[in-house]
Computed example of a mutant assay.
Amino acid sequence: MKPGPVMWPDAADSAIKGDLTVAVSYVTPAGGAVITSVSPAGLGDREQGRIGFTTSLGFPKKLERILRDPHVAFAYHTRDHGFADTTAYVLAQGKASVDLHPSPERLSAFMKSSEAFLGKTKRGPLWDWLLREYHQQRVFVDADLERVSVWENLGAHIDMTVTGTPWPQTPAVQAPPKNGTSPRVDVAELMRKIAGLPHRLVAYKGADGFPVILPARVTGHDAAGLHLEIPSGLLPPGGRRAGFLAHSFQPQCIGLSMRTLTGWLDVTDEGAVYAPHTSKGLAAPPYRTLLPVSNGLMAKYGFWRAQRDGTAERLRNLTAPANDLGTTQ
């Protein structure tokens, strides 16, 4: 018999319904994990045990990887500029599906609910044209939860409580990449870039395939990489591929700034060292009027590119097997 939905506990409800920005992680074909930040605008159905976020066709790699391996995780890790009234750190893990063609009713409902988080939608002939793809070509990623872990504080320093599938065994050490584990990014320059980004997290692939996202504090850096302080007992020993996220944002996500890294995480008795291999940054204009202009133009370009380079067709083909089996996407 298929188990019922995993309904998150009261301690997690406020964060899931009220956080402005959430960290989302998905796994890579090589066994690593990538973290990015999203603004889910309260998307979640407690009775169904389902949470989610929206994105656009302008970010095809994320969608392709989720469609190929649906194991995802959400970390509700900061209360900045949202509506949650809890101090809890919440890690929600589940299997995702992608709604490439949401109904007009679903898009309209999301636009209305998002205004409380992101501000009132711009209207008028020019704005309607500029934001057409941004509003009408949204893609929904829905995750049916299998586990919700809650710590009483944002530092995840107090024992967790788990709802759903029990916490898995410690994952095995991974084989190092062919090009070695040393940093491939200038570590000192990277530290300069993330100096003003206070929210920092690390993610790895757990033994059951779900990403694990944890708060991280950078305590220093050298030629080996970033030295991290992670809540005790939550990082498996040894070396493995891992993702790192540093980000900041202002009310309504104005002035959003984000840097995502992939690399190698080595955990010993002496501590954790993260060697970055790739580094990508994203910044939104810190002005209320310029932000929707930027979003609209990026969405238009992303939609055009997705149609031109075959991304849209590839994503449709990836969802086709699940649709053929009757799974709602």
Rank of each mutant, 00 (worst) to 15 (best):
K122C: 02
K122T: 08
K122R: 14
R123C: 01
R123W: 03
R123Y: 03
G124L: 04
G124T: 02
P125G: 01
P125A: 03
P125N: 04
W127A: 15
W127P: 00
D128N: 14
W129I: 00
W129G: 01
L131S: 06
L131E: 09
R132M: 08
R132Q: 12
R132P: 00
R132A: 15
R132K: 14
R132E: 14
E133V: 00
E133W: 02
H135M: 07
Q137R: 12
Q137E: 15
Q137T: 07
R138H: 00
V139T: 05
F140M: 06
F140N: 06
D142H: 07
V148G: 04
S149C: 08
S149M: 12
V150L: 11
V150W: 02
W151I: 00
N153W: 01
L154A: 12
L154D: 12
G155E: 15
A156I: 06
I158D: 12
D159S: 10
D159C: 01
M160V: 03
T161L: 05
V162N: 13
T165N: 06
T165G: 02
W167Q: 11
P168H: 05
P168T: 01
P168D: 11
Q169P: 00
T170L: 08
T170P: 00
P171Y: 03
V173G: 01
V173W: 03
P176D: 08
P176A: 14
P176Y: 07
P177L: 08
P177C: 08
P177M: 13
P177Q: 11
K178D: 14
N179V: 04
N179A: 15
N179T: 13
G180D: 09
T181G: 06
T181M: 09
S182A: 15
S182G: 07
P183D: 05
R184S: 09
V185F: 07
V185W: 07
D186K: 01
D186I: 01
V187A: 03
A188R: 08
A188T: 13
E189V: 02
E189M: 07
L190E: 05
R192C: 02
K193T: 13
I194P: 05
I194W: 08
A195I: 05
L197T: 09
L197M: 10
L197S: 06
H199K: 10
V202Q: 11
A203I: 13
A203W: 10
A203Q: 12
Y204K: 09
Y204H: 11
K205A: 13
K205I: 04
K205T: 15
D208W: 12
D208S: 13
D208N: 15
G209V: 11
P211L: 07
I213H: 03
L214S: 12
A216K: 02
A216G: 01
A216F: 02
V218S: 10
T219V: 13
G220E: 10
G220M: 04
G220F: 08
G220K: 09
H221V: 01
H221I: 02
D222I: 11
D222H: 11
A223Q: 14
H227Q: 13
L228M: 12
L228N: 06
L228Y: 05
S232V: 10
L234H: 11
L234C: 07
P237N: 03
P237Y: 04
P237C: 01
P237F: 07
G238H: 07
G239V: 06
G239I: 05
R241L: 15
R241F: 08
G243S: 10
G243D: 14
